[in-house]
Design a protein around this nucleic acid. Structure first.
Length: 358
DNA sequence: AAATTTTACAACCGCATAGAG
DNA sequence: TCTCTATGCGGTTGTAAAATT
């Protein structure tokens, strides 16, 4: 059954911006009678609008309890934290911000907060560090942030986020992401590798992988983090069960690293109604997402892997001459820079050597 | 100063859902 | 249980204002 749009029934109904006269009529009517049936209201109030338009105008603009003006830092923090848990459930988020409408919050998110998060290197969809190469290559900035000191003074949610990101081991994070990209490149695979063809990569940031326990970085320290997990291969998490031996070794060598993330307390995860969640497991009263989720646009698997499941033979071909070459160069350049950094620990060199020798 | 681009946000559209009959 | 209506919700669009060229 197809229902006709309510506002198309009478094409003479006015659309577009409301005039002050219309606002006055609507406010006057509702203040005297309440809104009652929205569909009946326009005629009763003498408005040439559809009921839906009247409801929207009232709830988003004319309602007397609406708060106007800039969002405070506290409100920003609340929105970000709630968004990390609820996703784009604007009406639910709005219930925690008295005087703010879902529409206003949605607009503010889309025009301000999203950009701020992106600028900080945080994926606004996942609330996790971005994995695009530009971000990865911006090592010096992250490292300098990480070394700024341990001041706990928070001046804004953004400072907080940056500091937490840094405190959580931005340098290590970046190294891991580079490692991941390195490992995703089918450069060093040999024919006797134990890794099945479709498991030639591994997401070091994957909370469900065995590499780092189940810790997810929450840049805002709000206690919960969620949203879809980043999946770099576009395959099911559970297809990554067979992780190459070399990376088990890396995992073992990085056990101590958990403290870097975990020091904040872990973070965690999902409300049970989280959309797109294929499964979750309880981890010390925390839901940890194990989700099938596509690769972020900025690091498309296709850009690194022209084929979805290349054979060992064409993996080599790809690695030598395929379109992934520029990305590989960038990654290796970043590694070179990293290795030149006198602050790099020797074990990172060991890890790299291990991976390349695999 | 004019033209163009960007930004902010009000409003619309269509789908989902609750609930009445 | 089914059908239908009213309302809620989230994505998208339109447009005025501000910023930039």
């Amino acid at each position: 059954m197809v229902r006709a749009p309510c506002c198309d029934e009478e094409s003479s109904l006015k659309k577009g911006p409301w005039t002050t006269e219309e606002d006055a009529k609507l406010m006057d009517y509702i203040s005297r009678n309440g809104h009652g049936s929205w569909r009946a209201l326009p005629k009763l109030a003498g408005l040439n609008r559809c009921g839906k338009s009247c409801r929207l105008r009232w709830t988003n603009y004319l309602r007397p309890d609406i708060k106007r003006g800039k969002f405070s830092e506290e409100e920003e923090r609340v929105i970000i934290n709630l968004h990390s848990v609820l996703g784009n459930k604007w009406s639910k988020i709005a219930t925690h911000l008295p005087g703010r409408t879902d529409n206003e919050i949605k607009n503010y998110w889309n025009t301000q907060l999203r950009k701020k998060l992106l600028h900080m290197g945080i994926d606004p969809n996942t609330h996790r560090p971005r994995t695009d190469l530009n971000q990865l290559l911006d090592l010096s900035r992250l490292l300098s942030v990480a070394s700024v000191g341990n001041s706990n003074k928070m001046t804004s949610p953004w400072d907080n986020a940056l500091k937490l990101k840094a405190a959580a081991g931005a340098a290590e994070l970046t190294k891991m992401q580079l490692l991941q990209h390195l490992y995703m490149m089918p450069v060093v695979r040999t024919s006797n590798s134990s890794v099945p063809p479709n498991n030639y990569n591994v997401d070091l940031m994957n909370p469900s992988s065995s590499l780092f326990g189940s810790h997810i970085l929450n840049p805002f320290g709000g206690g919960h983090v969620s949203g879809a997990s980043t999946m770099l291969s576009g395959q099911e998490w559970n297809q990554q069960a067979d992780i190459v031996d070399g990376f088990h070794a890396i995992s073992n060598s990085l056990e101590g690293f958990e403290g870097g993330f975990g020091a904040q307390g872990v973070i965690s995860s999902n409300s049970p109604d989280q959309e797109n969640m294929s499964s979750s497991c309880c981890y010390d009263d925390i839901y940890v997402q194990t989700k099938n989720h596509p690769l972020p646009a900025l690091v498309s698997s296709s850009s690194v892997y022209p084929g979805t499941s290349p054979s060992a033979a064409n993996q080599m071909e790809i690695s030598m001459s395929g379109p992934a070459a520029p990305a590989r160069t960038a990654i290796f350049d970043a590694w070179e820079k990293l290795m030149d950094d006198e602050t790099s620990e020797s074990y990172w060199k060991d890890i790299l050597e291990y991976v390349l020798a695999d």
